[in-house]
């Protein structure tokens, strides 16, 4: 939940509006998992302001959103 992330105030965060228990997506969808991980790693360098949360534009079960991010 985004509210938790806002309250915890991590240095850097990426957020996906997906169901609880699915931070990297669906089981066995390797490319989907990688899309989120790579965005998180990108955030290591792109986030310059402490506490920034990047909302990823990936919709649940809309593979076209992340297929080109690998």
């Amino acid at each position: 939940m985004r509210k938790f992330t806002e309250e915890v105030k991590p240095s850097r965060a990426v957020f996906v509006k997906w169901p609880l228990g699915h931070p990297f997506g669906e089981p066995f969808k390797v490319r989907q998992h990688n899309a989120v991980i790579r965005k998180a790693f990108e955030a290591l360098k792109t986030i310059k302001k402490p506490g920034t949360i990047i909302d990823l534009p990936f919709r649940w079960r809309r593979d076209e959103d992340w297929e080109d991010k690998n």
Binding site: P19, L20, G21, H22, P23, F24, G25, E26, P27, F28, V30, H33, N34, I37
Partner: peptide, 17 residues
């Protein structure tokens, strides 16, 4: 609800990735 993560731990703990 971790039924999907039970099928594939990478959903929450992406160690294989």
């Amino acid at each position: 609800d971790h039924r999907d993560a039970d099928k594939d731990m990478n959903v929450v703990f992406p160690i294989d990735r």
